[in-house]
């Protein structure tokens, strides 16, 4: 009894973890297997649903992120002088770290929750089982397109966010700090090399894939009506966020070493 207690505790902690890892691997493997022959229509539909309909949100996040960065950078620019690197170094690191993270978090809420809710609905309504009943693989027709669409949508939206943020930063720098656009963009070019941009985009692609996998696994695990759908969507958001922070922690040092 006493010797079994620690083991039991270990099991309680480890089993859900192993189960989750198994579920994620399964989703990834089955999606990759179906990648060559996906249903184009279903992909397009999901892309519109996850990507196109998130455009206003993305523009909003880009605008706010850009304005916030300039505001913070402006405080330092005033303190240290606008063209001093020290002041701007903060601003750029903010953009290239904060941008992907911020967008990842918001997308985990938007695309992740939506994807999980959709799949949970299909699952609890029995539509996934129904397809299997007429010997069609539900994964190929309904699940895999959503995984692909989530990952693609997040990566594309992230790229767009950068441009929007940079644009608003230029505008805000001009009005708030009186910095001409050419100087601002010039210092941009001084500070950032193509590799930095590539690194950030790579990061968002990883985040996008992670959100897609996590939310799909959460959606497919849903059970039992309205409450189950709600739980699945909430779980997708929480585990999506957690995985973003963890992946950020894991890949940033690798990227930093590889790119410099």
């Amino acid at each position: 009894m006493n010797t079994a207690a620690p083991l039991r505790t270990l099991g309680r902690v480890a089993l859900p973890g192993i189960r989750a890892a198994g579920a994620l691997t399964l989703v990834l493997a089955r999606t990759l297997r179906h990648l060559p022959h996906l249903s184009g229509r279903e992909c397009l539909r999901s892309l519109v649903l996850y990507g196109y309909q998130s455009l206003p949100l993305t523009l909003g996040v880009g605008t706010l992120a850009g304005a916030t960065v300039v505001l913070q950078a402006g405080i330092y620019a005033e303190r240290f002088g606008a063209r001093q690197y020290l002041g701007w170094a903060g601003g750029y690191a903010v953009l290239w770290e904060f941008g992907p993270l911020l967008l990842g978090l918001v997308m985990a809420g938007r695309v992740g929750a939506r994807n999980a809710a959709e799949l949970a609905l299909l699952k609890t309504n029995g539509q996934l089982e129904g397809l299997r009943g007429i010997s069609l693989d539900p994964f190929r027709y309904l699940v895999a397109p959503r995984v692909v669409a989530s990952a693609v949508a997040i990566t594309c939206l992230a790229t767009l966010t950068y441009f929007v943020a940079a644009l608003w930063e230029t505008v805000a720098a001009y009005f708030a700090l009186g910095l001409p656009a050419r100087v601002f963009l010039g210092s941009f070019a001084d500070m950032l090399r193509p590799n930095d941009v590539l690194g950030s985009l790579l990061k968002t692609a990883v985040f996008g894939t992670a959100i897609a996998l996590v939310s799909t696994a959460a959606g497919l695990a849903a059970q039992g009506g309205a409450r189950g759908v709600g739980r699945a969507a909430a779980a997708a958001v929480v585990f999506g966020c957690a995985s973003i922070f963890a992946l950020d922690f894991l890949i940033t040092p690798l990227l930093a070493r590889w790119l410099t």
Partner: peptide, 21 residues
């Protein structure tokens, strides 16, 4: 039904995030 729950979670999270920003 369940569809409304999924929609409520999605909009709830997004609006909370946007509000914080």
């Amino acid at each position: 039904g369940a569809q409304a729950v999924g929609r409520a979670v999605t909009t709830g999270v997004v609006e909370a995030c946007m509000g914080c920003l």
